[in-house]
Amino acid sequence: MILWEVSDLERTLKELKTGEKGVIIKVLGEKGAVKKRLMDMGMTSGAEVLVRKAAPLGDPIEINIRGYELTLRKAEAQNIIIK
């Protein structure tokens, strides 16, 4: 597990509110299927994300990335560091 200290300017994608934008700095987590899937869907450093909304029950969330809509759970969003 890579340790990452979240600085003042940085937050995780989970903390972003509806309508807020950010740029991905890093995806945390060990190498493997879950992380690769996030990468494959375009969650790589430099990509801009916009949080559209949360599902009616609060989780998962919907984001706009690389010109399309993607949904992921907060558990996964927590591993994505945003500036």
Binding site: E69, L70, E76
Partner: peptide, 11 residues
């Protein structure tokens, strides 16, 4: 392990 839920919402 819990399968991740990462899914495209197509237009």
């Amino acid at each position: 392990e819990v399968a991740p839920f990462v899914m495209e919402l197509p237009p």
